[in-house]
Simulated scan of single mutants.
Amino acid sequence: MFVAPLLIVNLLVITGPGAASIVFSFTDWDGLSTPAFVGLANYAEMLSSGAVLNAFVHNILWTIFFLIVPMAMGLVGAFLLSRIRRGQILFRVLFFIPYVLATVLSAAIWRQILDPEAGIGAALAGLGIPFLADVNFLGNPSLALGSVAFINTWQWWGFLLVIFLASMQAVDPALYEAARLDGAGPAREFWNITLPSIRPTFVFLGLMTVVWSFLVFDYIYVLTQGGPAGSTDVLSTVMYREAFQNQRHGYASSIAMLLTAISAATVLGYLLLRRKLKWDV
């Protein structure tokens, strides 16, 4: 009885639409007229689409970047913050603030900062430092994806830091005391005590990073809408464009099924590896 309201909401907004997407992925549907069954035609088109392949490559690059840069920043930042005793709460709040800001607000602020005519490049040029003058971070195909990833990292890494820090504070202090008596420095403490002790948290956040990297949409859509020339397209932006701009809901549903399959394979792989390597021990 207590969980019934949650189950009903889940059924209405997740399970129901999810099941409907499976059905619609086998149809030609514009969202209004009666869906026409087309079999595997949507999947065949998706697998041969240059736009989908381009977006998939960008998702892979995005995943690799976020598994390395924000995770490393969160780990190192949390370890350094765990070494201080005064002002820790203040730093935790400061690092966490970007995560709780609305995505649209953060994106709007960064769009102004990176504006080639009125942003940081123009401001520095006015001070006699012209190396960023006329650099169009979001309009240059070579820089756009990296720029959006940088902005998302600014928002995301503070969340990782707080979670890692909470996990590190649960480590038995006696382990660090014993290591210091044996002459271990901070680097050896981090490698031999901290990392093994927070392994479940590290692996879980790695799993969620992979899943969220393939579902990324908000910052890319607000800042670039997948442009310029598809240089920041990911699977979710292609899916959105096909569904709500081209009115191809059936084809968009097949892309959604691809995202679902990737997420499911990631979670299943994580569960199998956790059992095989005994990550919970």
Rank of each mutant, 00 (worst) to 15 (best):
G126V: 01
M71C: 10
A179E: 13
A107T: 05
G121S: 09
T194H: 09
R111I: 04
G77C: 09
L207C: 08
N192T: 10
W212M: 12
H249Y: 15
L138S: 11
L268S: 07
G18S: 08
L101G: 02
W154I: 05
T201W: 08
V9G: 12
M71Q: 15
G206D: 11
L67F: 00
A108K: 11
L207A: 06
I97K: 00
N10C: 13
T266S: 15
V3H: 06
K278M: 13
L259Q: 12
V38G: 07
S263T: 14
A51S: 14
A133E: 14
S147P: 11
T237H: 08
S236M: 14
L272D: 01
A256M: 03
L215P: 04
Y240E: 11
M208Q: 10
A252E: 08
D218C: 07
G230E: 09
N152F: 03
A72M: 15
R92D: 03
A55W: 00
I22R: 03
G18Q: 07
V222S: 06
A55I: 00
F24P: 04
G74H: 11
M239P: 03
P5R: 06
S21Q: 07
G50N: 10
Y270F: 15
D172C: 10
A107E: 03
A4T: 14
A51Q: 14
F159G: 04
L7Q: 08
S106V: 14
L101D: 00
L12H: 08
F56E: 01
L114C: 02
L61Y: 13
A133H: 12
L94D: 03
A166G: 15
T237N: 11
E242P: 01
N54H: 10
L273F: 12
F202T: 13
F96P: 02
R248H: 11
F56A: 12
I14H: 10
T15H: 08
I129S: 02
V267S: 03
G269S: 12
A243K: 05
V267Y: 07
G77F: 06
V93Q: 02
D172H: 13
L160E: 04
S213L: 02
F164K: 00
L165A: 00
Q169M: 14
A78Q: 01
D182R: 07
A184K: 03
L207E: 07
V104L: 09
F244H: 10
F96Y: 09
V203C: 07
A166F: 01
D30F: 03
M257Q: 14
E45V: 01
V100C: 00
E242H: 09
T27Y: 09
R85F: 10
P35K: 01
A170I: 03
I193D: 12
L145M: 15
L7Y: 11
Q247V: 03
W154C: 04
W191S: 13
S254R: 04
A252Y: 06
I8L: 15
S33M: 04
L268V: 15
F79A: 13
G185R: 00
S263Y: 02
S197V: 02
Q88A: 12
G121H: 09
S167E: 01
I151M: 06
G250H: 06
L40D: 12
T237A: 10
Y43W: 15
E117N: 14
T153G: 06
V211K: 04
L7S: 10
A187S: 05
P17R: 05
L235G: 07
W279C: 03
N192C: 12
V234Y: 09
T103N: 04
Q155T: 07
V203S: 11
F24V: 05
V100N: 01
I64M: 12
F2R: 09
R92Y: 02
N246P: 05
R83D: 06
L132N: 05
